[in-house]
Design a protein around this nucleic acid. Structure first.
Length: 596
RNA sequence: GCGUUCGUAGCUCAGUUGGAUAGAGCGCCUGGCUUCGAACCAGGAAGUCGGGGGUUCGAGUCCCUCCGGACGCACCA
């Protein structure tokens, strides 16, 4: 919040203390806690620490200075807190007087803006996306939006894992059991169709595994993974992978066809979620990239060759152990291609920072990756960051595909949209609105996304299906609803409602001040969320703002205000709240609504 | 075993980087629609901030320790 008072106080305090103006820190005000009967508060302890003065004395000095300021109605010192009540005209002038200033406050000074590449989603093309991907996609888009709102130049990219043994499993099952089925012939979305064959493979594999264990009692104690190549179908999948690597035309043909089905399915899901990328990398085109870097590093002594021919790196001094970066047969491991694509992105976009939105189970992997990049001598490795987020659990525990407890993304969207549609119809007086579908999508997805974004990304989420479909309380629709009510008022007020000069001095009700002060907190909320890579800060802010509006709306008649000047000022204040709510929701990739 | 991380109201979660009397939503109880949209508002009950030590003007927040959970420590991605 940028109050003229604070700038003035800073200079006056320096003069009063007889120090240079620059030694006094820039003053920042917080909202005064409820029940304190003031508007804003300065923390005298912080000031005292910065200036090395005793807190009570300093706080009294500041209070005395504040009392003399023309913007101040009253200032009281409690402990070392300076609680200030502003004159209404000054409060509204500095908080909501300039609509552009609110939005601009979110943007960092030019010198602090960065070019940031953010990688997220990174799906495998063997099955459709589920709730875990939804959290990833939602966080990826919201983080991109928040960073952009803070003034950074953000490049969102995707890296699709479109090759490997898991892809061959679907392909093999399709080859054997598919009977030429296609998305067109079956009416199935491409990613779901391919996913069905991934499941089909697993069924067949389990059947063969059971037969094998029955015939060979000596294998009974072995893990399923150890016996993969002992089964006929497992062997066949491995052979298919080798054929793929040798570019066998038939295998490549099938692979290309099935991948195109999956990717068009993904694109539908992304479009529905509002997910977009500036560039999409395919692992099939990048997986060999790291190899020459490894060879180069080997020559420079960064890596060592082991007796069996594998190339390794010793990261003991970083307490990360040893890591194989190239197999004995010269093929890549996962981290090899990650090294390659990281360099590719660095070359292509020249970012100041690279971010990866990837689950917290891969924290160790990224530590190793960044350590290797440092050893290779890349200074920019220090600006690589893994944005680790927690898993999504169900009341029954982890989602497990084998137990059929995976929550499918498309099904979930359908369910949320259906519930939103019902909610709209229930609440509409006459016929349902013409744009029912668009509203239902916006509300259903808004509820889902907001639920995921309002908790800190680091925390493991418990997805409670019952609670998740609610549209009341601390939800996305609550925020959308506040915006829709403002739009409704502005529509009724007519096109000239906001024309001419505003007289802010007619305002002064507690609910009006609270709303204005909340609006002015937008910039700080965005910048904090950007600095912490934490969407929940912005989501919580938007809830507080929507609550402040609801309170105001209840207490203060707008369209039926007693005087034209008051009506005008309250409409203007409502408009500010609407702008902030819309901007905030859009940063989170949630659609603001004119009507619900 | 080592590492990371978490433990706050019945449930799900906040807590602005050490500041005022620990908050919100859901659920439960009570009240408010002939008045700008009740997806709303107002009020109530509900807490040994996992336990115990320590650091200081001040600790849910920092340090130590114990208890309990999650996730890692692959030539899988």
């Amino acid at each position: 919040m940028n109050f003229q008072l604070l700038g003035d106080l800073r200079g006056q305090l320096a003069a009063a203390l007889g120090v240079d103006a620059t030694t006094v820190p820039v003053l920042t005000a917080d909202l005064c806690p409820p029940g304190m009967k003031a508007d804003i508060t300065l923390n005298g302890f912080h000031l005292a620490k910065a200036l090395r003065r005793p807190p009570p004395v300093l706080a009294e000095t500041v209070t005395a200075l504040a009392k003399q300021h023309p913007d101040v109605a009253d200032a009281v010192c409690v402990k070392a807190f300076i609680n200030i009540t502003l004159k209404p005209a000054a409060l509204f002038r500095d908080t909501v007087g300039d609509p552009d200033a609110i939005a601009n406050a979110a943007r960092l000074p030019e010198a602090e803006r960065r070019r940031i590449v953010i990688e997220f989603s990174a799906p495998n093309t063997n099955k459709p996306q589920h709730l875990g991907h939804v959290r990833n996609n939602t966080l990826g888009m919201a983080t991109s939006g928040i960073l952009s709102a803070a003034g950074h130049l953000v490049t969102p990219v995707n890296l699709i894992n479109d090759r490997g043994i898991h892809i061959c499993k679907s392909m093999l099952a399709y080859q054997r059991f598919g009977n030429g089925e296609t998305p067109a012939s079956s009416g199935k979305k491409g990613d779901h169709l391919v996913g069905d064959y991934y499941v089909r493979f697993d069924q067949e594999y389990r059947r063969q595994l059971a037969d094998l264990k029955a015939a060979r009692p000596d294998l009974a104690g072995k893990e399923s993974d150890e016996l993969f190549l002992e089964t006929e179908i497992g062997r066949a999948a491995q052979d298919m992978l080798l054929a793929w690597e040798k570019a066998d035309p038939a295998v490549r043909q099938l692979w290309a066809t099935m991948n195109s089905w999956v990717i068009s399915g993904f694109n539908e899901t992304y479009a529905r979620m509002g997910v977009r990328f500036d560039q999409v990398f395919l692992e099939s085109q990048t997986y060999t990239l790291g190899r020459d870097i490894i060879q180069d590093g080997l020559a420079r002594g960064v890596f060592q060759k082991r007796a069996d021919g594998a190339v390794i790196i010793d990261l003991e001094s970083d307490k990360l152990g040893q890591k194989v970066v190239l197999r004995g047969d010269g093929t890549s491991v996962y981290i090899t291609q990650d090294i390659g694509t990281t360099l590719l992105k660095q070359r292509e976009f020249s970012p100041d920072r690279q971010l990866w939105v990837v689950g917290d189970e891969q924290i160790h992997h990224f530590r190793v990756l960044f350590a290797i990049l440092r050893r290779l001598g890349y200074a920019w490795a220090a600006d690589c960051h893994h944005m680790a987020y927690g898993m999504v659990n169900l009341p029954s525990g982890r989602m497990k595909s084998r137990e059929g407890t995976v929550v499918d993304a498309d099904d979930l969207f359908d369910e949320m949209t259906t519930l939103a549609r019902q909610a709209i119809v229930e609440r509409s007086d006459g016929a349902p609105p013409a744009d029912l579908e668009a509203r239902a999508q916006a509300i259903g997805l808004g509820a889902l996304k907001f639920m995921l974004l309002k908790v800190n990304p680091k925390t493991t989420i418990l997805f409670d299906p019952e609670a998740s479909v609610k549209f009341e309380g601390d939800t996305g629709p609550y925020v959308q609803y506040a915006g829709a009510r403002i739009r409704s008022m502005l529509r009724k007020a007519g096109p000239d409602a906001l024309a001419g000069v505003v007289d802010w001095s007619v305002l002064g009700e507690p609910a009006e001040k609270e709303l204005a002060l909340r609006c002015a907190g937008y910039g700080a909320a965005v910048r904090q969320a950007a600095a912490d890579l934490d969407s929940s800060g912005l989501a919580t802010y938007l809830l507080d703002l929507a609550k402040a509006f609801s309170h105001f709306y209840h207490d203060c008649p707008v369209l039926t205000a007693p005087t034209p000047a008051l009506r005008r000022a309250r409409l203007e204040l409502s408009d500010r709240a609407h702008r902030v709510l819309s901007a905030g929701l859009q940063a989170l990739t949630i659609t603001p609504l004119d009507s619900m």
